[in-house]
Amino acid sequence: MKAVFMTDRGKVRLHNEDNGGIFMNSHGQRLAIVADGMGGHRAGDVASDMTIKHLKVLWETSAKIQTAEEAENWLEESVLQVNHKIYEHSLKNTECEGMGTTIVAAICTNLFATVVNIGDSRCYLLNESGFKQLTEDHSLVNELVRSGQISKEDAEHHPRKNVLLRALGTEESVEMDVKTIIFEEEDVLLLCSDGLSNKVSQEEMESIITDKEMSFEDKAAEFIKRANQYGGEDNITLAIVEYQEFNEGR
């Protein structure tokens, strides 16, 4: 596997409330995560930081994932644990009241990738069929698009574009979407916060991700550069993972 993680405060925000990383367990399997925190008094960065730290510890001590069912169960159970921790923390600390975070995460093995998401941070897949968005945003605007009340073009400039229907840590329980895909040689996953997807079009993303002349680090830096060129009003965070055959530990 080749993988890179990058985050940037952007050009407007005083703080970076995004977080994430790419972590390996003792069996050589990777977990990529992007979390976009929200909440007043800088509590958003508390929620995203708690999410990443807790999932990192759980992953680094996890058993080897051998089936899609194991991957899906691990993500569901671990994300529910994190939801409980964030929610309890917000109840006990008034400055963190109402805080939460989006999450998109992917377990990457030799056979498949399993993706979980809550909120509007996204996962895209590049494979032999092309470049497409794998996840569905849990947002008011996306529901309006899905129900046919507004067009995708209208959604781009809708005044309530940032209203989320689901977030991690804001309520006692949370629903998440989990899906598993076949992950094959040269397939690429792009995970990102809306600071990237709101600014850089899917067509532009595809042109960058498929550029054979650019290194992984250069591609990540180019994504952030473009989002900042187009305004950079939000924090910008992304993780890229490309499948390459590797030997998973026993």
Results as ranks from 00 to 15, higher is better:
114 T>K: 04
61 T>M: 03
113 A>V: 07
156 E>K: 14
213 E>H: 08
16 N>G: 08
189 L>V: 12
83 N>V: 06
161 K>S: 14
213 E>D: 13
16 N>L: 01
3 A>L: 06
18 D>R: 09
198 N>L: 05
211 D>C: 09
138 H>L: 05
54 H>W: 11
68 A>P: 11
160 R>H: 12
199 K>Q: 15
197 S>E: 03
115 V>F: 01
27 H>F: 14
86 I>H: 00
86 I>Q: 03
144 L>N: 10
222 E>Q: 12
76 E>M: 09
202 Q>Y: 04
247 N>H: 13
89 H>S: 14
53 K>C: 11
101 T>K: 01
44 G>V: 00
102 T>V: 04
111 L>N: 14
70 E>H: 05
14 L>R: 10
28 G>I: 02
27 H>S: 15
3 A>P: 05
33 I>V: 13
141 V>Q: 05
10 G>F: 03
227 A>E: 02
147 S>C: 14
5 F>K: 06
203 E>H: 08
163 V>P: 11
174 V>H: 00
216 F>T: 13
242 E>F: 04
65 I>H: 00
112 F>K: 02
25 N>G: 11
70 E>Q: 15
116 V>S: 04
53 K>Y: 09
12 V>R: 09
244 Q>G: 07
156 E>N: 10
211 D>F: 06
75 L>A: 02
194 D>H: 04
109 T>G: 06
76 E>H: 11
172 E>M: 07
171 E>K: 11
37 G>T: 00
214 M>G: 07
98 G>H: 08
59 W>K: 00
26 S>D: 15
195 G>N: 00
21 G>F: 06
135 T>Q: 04
93 N>T: 13
129 S>G: 11
97 E>Q: 14
157 H>K: 12
171 E>W: 06
160 R>T: 11
